[in-house]
């Protein structure tokens, strides 16, 4: 697992209180990991902070799964 993927996973485990094994690339934040709309906003903000990036709202809307988050960050992190 890439460094980015493991850091993303750690944030999700911490914020959503889920088990590490549930955080698979296909897992959807809302459908699989029990996040509501506020949780999702918080996750995006945590990713921004952790990777020192800004994720515009229209891009954030497309980040629905763990894999989406990892790909977006891999492409945009400095």
């Amino acid at each position: 697992m890439s460094d980015i993927a493991s850091r993303v996973k750690a944030i999700i485990v911490d914020k959503l209180g889920v088990d590490e094994t549930e955080v698979t690339p296909e897992a959807s934040f809302t459908n699989d990991l029990g996040a509501d709309s506020l949780d999702t906003v918080e996750l995006i903000m945590e990713f921004e902070k952790e990777f020192n990036i800004a994720i515009p709202d229209d891009q954030a809307e497309n980040i629905g799964t763990v894999g989406d988050a990892v790909s977006y960050i891999e492409e945009n992190a400095k």
Binding site: L38, D39, V41, E42, M45, E48, K49
Partner: peptide
């Protein structure tokens, strides 16, 4: 501004 979405509620 990096306020938590849970700040207000």
């Amino acid at each position: 501004p990096r306020f938590s979405p849970f700040f207000i509620p």
